[in-house]
Every structure is written in C-alpha cells, then in structure tokens.
C-alpha cells in the first residue's frame, strides 16, 4: 500500500550461530517479513518467545542492519531515500527493560533532553521541552527531573522512556514489550497514557507483546509471527473472532480468558517451537499443527487474502482438498 506510513519489504535477518564454511549455522530470526502500517493505526505483534518480534522491531528502527529487504517510511527507503538521522526522528522505540534502556549516570530530565539536542535544539530549550514532556507523561518535572534511573519505580521509568521517544515528535513509535515488565495496575495506567498520547498526537504504534489480551485492547490490526515468519495479519476483531491460521487459533486457545465459558477444551500448543536454526521444511508450523494435511510438510504456504486487509499463510485457506 502506498499510503502506509511505515512498511517492511521482505526483511531478512539471520544470526550466526557458530560454525564455519559449509558447517556454518544460522538462526533464521526474521525470514522474509513484509507488512505495512497505516498512519494513526496501532499494529499489534504477537508470537511465542524467540519468534523474531524484537529482531523485527530492531530491523524496523534500523538499529540492526537487515541482511535483505528494506524499510520504507512514507514510501521512501530508510537509510537511502530518507537519511537515517531524519528517519530516527520520525520512528522511535521504547524497550522492554525500562532500567537497562536508561543511562544509569544520567538524570531523567537529561535523558529526555538528549534527543532534541542531537537534532539541533539548544540545551536550555531541550531541557524546557523535556520538563514539559515529563509533565505530560504524569511525572512532576521538579521532583523527577533530577532523579537517576535507580531512584524511581519501573512504571515511572517507562513513562520517562515514553517521554524520551516523544521528545523527537515522532510519527511512529515501536513499543517492544513496553508494558510487559510492569505490574498489572501500572500496566493499565501506562496503556491508558499510550492511548491518550496516540489520540492527542496522531501517533502510529507498533505494539509488540506476548499478552494477547493487551494486544487486543490496544491494536487496530494484529500480526502473528511464528519462527521468523508472519503467519497471519488482519484487523483485530476479525483475527480474534475468526482466526484463519491454526497457529493463531492455538495462541488464542492458550490465552487466559476472563470469561470461563470461552475457554476451549482443545489442547493448545504442545511443547516448544522448533529450533529456528533448522526450521521444519514446508509449513514451519506443521510439526505442531493439529490440522496438518497433505501439502503441509512439503510445500510452504504463501500469504493469501482471506478477508478485508486480512492475510494468512496456511494451505487450509487455499488448497481445495482441505475443505472437507
């Protein structure tokens, strides 16, 4: 789609996992991932641990060079057509570990003020803006501005991290498990803050989480990843009520529901995902799929349109013999 604000095109990232020459092993952390995000939209990203969510986030923000593929911002390739420095001003990131992502020797005010100074705002002005942003994320700048990361709580630190991202006046914020480490009540408050900020500033979020309830709450669309690939992506309501990929179904079945009647009896996912060093051939999910059939072990399914803006990569949707 050409009106996407941010899009990934065939992103590939393989990590070295030891060995040389022919014996060289690679972790296929992200394998041919493409998607786009519309302006003002929140795209949720879910999947088991190790499926490549964080790697995707770091490729999207160009913190990690991709092996292949490109990221486009408003249709222009990041790093070439949009210079990296400008790209970074538009696309910001909030990390999971609120403590590790703050310099232990820097006060909260300086942490927020750092970004604007990089982009040419002078020091007093940057600090004034930082103070106003701390205020906006619910932290009294007089009290919290001079503090160090170890002197405040996790929720407060994550507010600072959000303020730091906002200081660039970005269009897109990638939130990698940004609320996962927080207590439930604090998590809810930070989520509310994020929702308010999105409305107020017309932000676009890419919201990565393993908590399907939270993702459902905040996302307009959801993307499901498995072993470095996108298996399904679609509007939140469609995906949650009528998933078109058995993996999504399994994830939803495993999801702790607040409504006991909605809990399925079907055993959800069994065991751990296979090793991403040697992903299974054909459909990567076939070793755990309850509905695997003929073509699954041999042929990899390709994404197929199954609804409005709804794609799924499963032979069940395309191969006729599966219908019965």
């Amino acid at each position: 789609m050409s009106d996407a604000i941010l899009s990934a095109h065939n992103l590939v990232k393989h990590f070295n996992a030891g060995g040389w020459g022919a014996a060289r092993k690679v972790v296929r952390a992200v394998d041919d991932v493409s998607f786009d995000v519309a302006p003002g939209e929140t795209l949720g990203v879910v999947g088991e641990s190790g499926c490549g969510k964080s790697t995707t986030a770091r490729l999207l923000t160009h913190l990690l060079p991709s092996d292949r593929g490109e990221v486009r911002f408003r249709g222009r390739v990041a790093g070439t057509e949009v210079p990296l420095k400008e790209f970074r001003r538009h696309v910001q990131m909030v990390f999971q570990d609120s403590y590790a992502s703050l310099n232990p020797r820097m006060t909260m005010l300086d942490a927020v003020a750092f970004g604007p100074t990089v982009h040419g705002v002078d020091q007093p002005e940057a600090r004034r803006r930082a103070g106003a942003l701390l205020e906006r994320v619910g932290l009294d700048p007089a009290r919290f501005g001079p503090r160090y990361p170890h002197e405040i709580s996790g929720g407060q630190r994550q507010r600072v991290n959000i303020a730091r991202a906002l200081a660039f006046d970005p269009d897109v914020i990638v939130l990698d498990e940004a609320v996962s480490a927080l207590d439930k009540s604090v998590e809810a408050q930070v989520l509310n803050l994020l929702t308010e900020l999105r409305r107020e500033r017309g932000l676009t979020y890419i919201f990565i989480s393993h908590d399907l309830n939270v993702v459902r709450h905040i996302s307009d669309r959801v993307m499901v990843m498995y072993l470095g690939e996108v298996v399904e992506i679609g509007p939140t309501a469609d995906l949650y009520t009528a998933p078109r990929h058995p993996y999504t179904e399994a994830l939803l079945a495993a999801m702790p529901s607040l409504d006991p009647d909605r809990r399925t009896m079907e055993a959800p996912l069994q065991g751990d995902p296979p090793n991403p060093i040697d992903p299974p051939p054909g459909c990567r999910f076939h070793t755990r799929c309850a509905r695997a059939f003929g073509p699954c072990p041999g042929t990899a399914p390709v994404p197929a349109l199954v609804g409005r803006r709804h794609l799924a990569s499963c032979h069940l949707n395309t191969v006729k013999e599966a219908a019965e």
């Binding site: 970074r88 990131m93 590790a100 703050l102 310099n103 232990p104 750092f114 990089v118 660039f168």
Partner: peptide, 22 residues
C-alpha cells in the same frame, strides 16, 4: 550492548556523541 546505548543510537546521534554522552 546495553539498551540505553541502543536507545541513544535510536536518537540518531553520531558514534562520537554517543561515546561522549553515554
């Protein structure tokens, strides 16, 4: 390897600035 250096890189600062400030 710490995330705050990554966050600093995400600011678009040059390597020299990141080394100096962080």
């Amino acid at each position: 390897k710490l995330e705050y250096i990554e966050a600093a890189r995400a600011s678009g600062a040059s390597a020299f600035t990141i080394v100096r400030a962080h």
